[in-house]
Nucleic acid binder design. Structure first.
Lengths: 253, 253
DNA sequence: GCCCGGTTGTAACGGATCGTAACAGAGATT
DNA sequence: AATCTCTGTTACGATCCGTTACAACCGGGC
């Protein structure tokens, strides 16, 4: 059962379930009441430089975020999977383009709408800050990966990091989907596609991983991979969301 | 002439000049009323993991921000020069250490104090967001430099970027100070000290730069350097502060 | 001035990564 | 099933950058 509130922006309405404490007015709940858009694999969601009017939550599929350099090189800034959000760290205009890697469903929230809601629900502000801080931490980890790690270390970090995001943890025989292409991984890790392939092959030879088709990897020796990755994730990734939230609350109140 | 307000945290007070329009309550003005701390070259200001209670503005000198990896490698996340601020993108705890490169003077603001002030002066919030967005943009540029550019391109970007920060622009014979060591530059650009030296020597041979002692560089052919850097800075660096401010205002109101 | 230590510069070498190209495989189309 | 196309894989030579070693420079202290 839902109730509608008039929205101060553009005459649209905002719905939320009644009977829940106002603490349940989370970003997730806000997104939940939005319709879902569909994108085919390879389709663009928005482009670098577009006015950043919307925030997004991926319902299904995988999205790549990237920038194209003047000379044509592509730098992938990150990936977003089902359940994750994007757009929070952008200013007036998106600082990267977003493209569907797989078929994607997503919900979008107008910024103007969120801004209006913050007026009446102050506890929303820290939730926004949380998201920004999370993206900042991810960017800093990325900087370290690109600046300090070798090819194998980068790949190991990428795999371990992918497992972390799925929630399942530590257990030895974990299988994950890597829906993006090798080229995507290369552009994300600052390497070439051939180096990606070579490293994957080496991991396979050494028994660290096994491949089940192109886009599915079994991580057979998580310990070894984590060691290769340099325990870099241990610095704040698991409790990231909690720490971010805690801080965001401290910030705005 | 100043007036004091009770501060909700720990019995301290907040001062600001009276008689000015409230728009003059900028971060700069807040810092201006703080005493300055002194640090000798090499001295630490704070350490990664410390509770992030303070924001800082450098009054004089240069500070390096870095993280130490488990295996001892050092990743320099950035430098801060006189007039610049730091600490905004950190959560409950600092995500990097800060060390004086040269003798440094800085002013510090307690976070709790700023938070309290935001209550009574809503227009402060967008100023904080601006700073966070600026650091996010810098991080994204850094990611592209480390992931996509070669050694010469990285160095060219570093030099051009340093000129941009001083304010003076485009004019051919520009001389800048690089107070940090070659090792610092190497750890910032993800290269070794020898590669830094090689590239600097090559730039000198090719007439792109001239050296006046170790820590002073004359950029003789800015055009060539900018071209090498891949016009990467053109993507938002000059108007960064304005765009950030504009967005931050939109965000919080 | 002189010494001394740390920083910086130079060179030679080796290894990691890149670029090209040829091939293999999977999925789509006919 | 046959073909086509795109992606992925492997091999090999080229290049870039890291490693090692050592010399030169600079600044501070005596």
């Amino acid at each position: 059962m839902y109730v509608s509130y008039p929205d101060s922006s553009a005459g649209s309405v905002v719905s939320r379930p009644i009977g829940l404490p106002s603490e349940a007015l989370t970003l997730e709940n806000l997104f939940a009441s939005q319709p879902t858009d569909k994108f085919a694999a390879g389709e663009g969601v928005f482009w670098e430089g577009d006015a950043a009017c919307d925030l997004f939550q991926i319902t299904e599929g995988c999205v790549r975020l990237y920038r194209i350099l003047p000379d044509g090189r592509r730098a992938i800034m990150g990936f977003r999977f089902a359940g994750e959000m994007l757009g929070f760290s952008c200013q007036t205009n998106y600082s990267y383009s977003a493209e569907a890697v797989t078929p994607v469903r997503l919900r979008r929230l107008r910024r103007a709408r969120i801004q209006a809601m913050v007026e009446g629900a102050e506890h929303l502000q820290p939730l926004l800050l949380t998201k920004i801080f999370e993206e900042m931490e991810a960017a800093q980890r990325h900087i370290i990966v690109l600046g300090q790690l070798g090819a194998e270390e980068r790949m190991a970090h990428f795999l371990v990091s992918a497992v972390r995001r799925t929630g399942m943890d530590q257990k030895r025989p974990v299988a994950i989907d890597l829906p993006m292409t090798r080229q995507d991984i290369a552009d994300y890790l600052g390497l070439t596609i051939e180096t990606i392939c070579r490293v994957i092959s080496k991991f396979k030879r050494d028994g660290l991983i096994a491949l089940e088709g192109r886009h599915r990897v079994v991580l057979r020796r998580m310990g070894a991979l984590q060691e290769l990755a340099g325990e870099l994730d241990a610095l704040g990734e698991p409790s990231e969301a909690q720490a971010g939230l805690k801080q965001a609350i401290a910030w705005s109140h």
